[in-house]
Design a protein around this nucleic acid. Structure first.
Length: 292
DNA sequence: AAAATGCTCAACCGCTAACCA
DNA sequence: CTGGTTAGCGGTTGAGCATTT
């Protein structure tokens, strides 16, 4: 496959955008619309590659971008959608109006992952206690989730135990149990609005095993006891709650009377991802709901 | 006050699916 | 059908700022 020449090869600007560049790009897109990114820089008088222009517009300049902190509701939805979709940032962002995939990705990596790691430690510790109460040789080493090897994870690990007060407070409020984000292996979507797309559920043995350990009832995920600490769930719990030994995830998928829009959106995804025995199918309405 | 360390997030990189001639 | 082009995605980087030592 061909590759567009990178910025360096053609002597184009890189790095942070100036206000002048922003203005030029904004002006051009407002006049001519999005698209044609390859030829846009030249037409707009920018010394940037099309890729860079597209990214700048999509992630920063677009008028419908929502600025400011992620709300608690958004935070919750991100966690839920990630549990279903994995690192499908664009899909997740598509359900959060005004938020970009880049923003969601950054938020996940900087905020939510920290919670996850913190909870993993708690979960592992409590799991060990649980195991002691049960059979000695019940489990083998596979219980412990592998540590993420990337540098930022290591940095974050170092900071554990002395994190910001705000983070601690936030974590105290959140109790989340997540399946590992591996449910989807391949998701093929057209890049045009052709109206339909195929969806492939994860058919790997790993996934099947995982799904075998979950029961889906009324949109609640119920994790079986034996799976505690086995990558299928992690709670964001305060230390003074004995939630690690809880089995059901109902607090997370609570279906109260006043369910908000985001709750319903989540349910849509959840139901679609749990259609019995369907590996390839079309659901145009779902596509429309996402992309329109 | 200065240096070291950590955090955030905009931007870049590399890859691939979709499109088209 | 083939191969080039383009758009879009997810992972990673690094500058700048904040916090800690």
């Amino acid at each position: 496959m061909g590759r567009a020449p990178c910025c360096a090869k053609v002597g184009l600007h890189k790095g942070p955008w100036t206000t002048k560049e922003d203005a030029l790009l904004t002006k051009y897109v407002q006049a001519h619309g999005e698209g044609q990114w390859k030829s846009l820089p030249k037409k707009a008088g920018l010394l940037r590659c099309g890729k860079s222009c597209r990214l700048r517009w999509m992630n920063y300049l677009r008028p419908d971008i929502k600025r400011g902190n992620i709300t608690q509701e958004e935070d919750d939805l991100i966690i839920r959608l990630h549990s279903l979709l994995g690192n499908k940032w664009s899909l997740i962002a598509g359900r959060l109006p005004g938020r970009t995939d880049n923003e969601i990705k950054n938020y996940w990596n900087t905020h939510l992952l920290k919670k996850l790691q913190r909870n993993e430690q708690t979960s592992e510790h409590d799991n060990e206690d649980q195991q002691r109460k049960t059979k000695k040789n019940n489990n083998v080493g596979g219980n412990k989730k592998k540590k993420n090897n990337n540098n930022k994870q290591k940095k974050n690990d170092k900071k554990k135990g002395k994190s910001k007060i705000n983070d601690d407070e936030e974590e105290d409020k959140i109790q989340v149990y997540l399946p590992k984000a591996i449910r989807i292996k391949a998701l093929t979507l057209p890049r045009t609005d052709s109206g339909s797309f195929t969806f492939e559920s994860n058919s790997s043995s790993e996934s099947q095993q995982k799904q075998g350990n979950e029961q889906v009832t009324n949109n609640n995920v119920v994790c079986e006891v034996g799976e505690i600490g086995e990558n299928d769930r992690f709670g964001f719990c305060s230390d003074d709650h004995d939630l690690v030994n809880d089995i059901e995830c109902e607090s997370f998928f609570d279906t109260g009377n006043n369910r908000g829009t985001l709750e319903r959106l989540y349910d849509e995804y959840f139901q679609l991802l749990n259609v019995d025995g369907i590996c390839n199918f079309e659901f145009d309405s779902f596509a429309e709901s996402i992309f329109n």
